[in-house]
């Protein structure tokens, strides 16, 4: 059963990203991205991380994607993006990308070498305890970061008086 869910979700996710690469309509791209994020949320749930799953759906599939859609509406690009041309640059990128992919697979294997299959990584309670003890400073600083991002975004995109 778990395998079935896993396979369905991974196919959805990878498929959505692949579709995004192919499609040239930005609005569609954004919707594919929502699909990818939502299925990733499901995968998080399979990994015994219910809180991360919930946050993923709320923040990514919810907030960030709404932001993207608003931005797309604002731009109101009538013409679709032009077709991509294959260039030397693209070939170089493809080569490097392949190398990177191989390296990542190797790295993943190396990372898993010392793993001991123990049970769940601890529930939400353990996570909360960790956030408010070991990671307390980081946690508090993220709140500052969000505030700074808010102010920064307003300063950047807000209507200028002279504009």
């Amino acid at each position: 059963m778990a395998w079935a869910v896993f396979i369905v979700l991974s196919v959805l996710c990878v498929g959505a990203v692949a579709a995004m690469i192919v499609s040239r309509n930005q609005a569609h791209n954004a919707l594919f991205l929502v699909l990818a994020f939502a299925s990733l949320g499901g995968l998080f749930g399979l990994l015994d991380a219910p809180f991360a799953a919930a946050v993923q759906v709320l923040v990514y599939a919810g907030a960030i994607m709404v932001l993207f859609l608003f931005a797309i509406m604002m731009f109101n690009l009538r013409r679709p993006a032009p077709r991509e041309k294959k260039t030397l640059r693209a070939a170089l990128a493809a080569g490097l990308g392949t190398v990177l992919f191989v390296e990542l697979v190797l790295a993943a294997r190396k990372a898993l070498a010392g793993s001991v299959p123990t049970g769940a990584p601890g529930g939400i309670e353990g996570l909360g305890r960790l956030l408010f003890t070991d990671y307390l400073y980081a946690f508090e600083i993220t709140s500052l970061l969000i505030l700074a991002a808010l102010v920064g975004a307003l300063a950047l995109a807000g209507k200028k008086e002279d504009a």
């Binding site: 640059r89 990128a93 990308g97 390296e103 990542l104 190797l106 790295a107 190396k110």
Partner: peptide, 20 residues
């Protein structure tokens, strides 16, 4: 942008390769 990203990718590849 693409050229910068390419340089960046090259850097990541070298770095990761060195780590491995």
């Amino acid at each position: 942008l693409r050229d910068y990203a390419l340089a960046f990718l090259l850097g990541v590849v070298i770095f990761l390769g060195a780590l491995l």
